[in-house]
């Protein structure tokens, strides 16, 4: 029975991944849909990382995950805004993060 759960979950996640890869789906994004989709990576990646740094308690307070997060996140944001190479941004801000956290 547990295998039913695993296979069922695998099928559901796979359908969500494959859905718009199927040729039988007739929908083709037009120019307006393509414009909307061109912002999908900015929107979804921000929606994933923002709640790691800022935690809302559901009533009235937004808490920071910590000062280490705030400083290292600000550094990553500033360096990226200046269009510094992504690898350097990740290495520098992660190094600063762990220095503050463990030193």
């Amino acid at each position: 029975m547990t295998w039913t759960l695993i296979i069922g979950m695998a099928t559901i996640t796979y359908i969500n991944r494959y859905f718009f890869f199927a040729r039988s789906i007739a929908y083709r994004p037009g120019p307006h849909a393509q414009r909307l989709l061109s912002y999908s990576s900015y929107a979804v990646l921000t929606a994933i990382w923002a709640p790691i740094v800022f935690e809302f308690d559901g009533i009235h307070e937004v808490d920071l995950a910590g000062l280490d997060y705030l400083i290292a996140t600000s550094l990553a944001a500033a360096l990226s805004f200046l269009r510094i190479n992504s690898l350097i941004v990740v290495l520098a801000s992660t190094a600063v993060f762990f220095l503050i956290r463990f030193v």
Partner: peptide
């Protein structure tokens, strides 16, 4: 934090 750094580096 590596997720935060990587995703910011890709978008900002």
């Amino acid at each position: 934090f590596a997720i935060v750094a990587t995703f910011i580096a890709m978008t900002f």
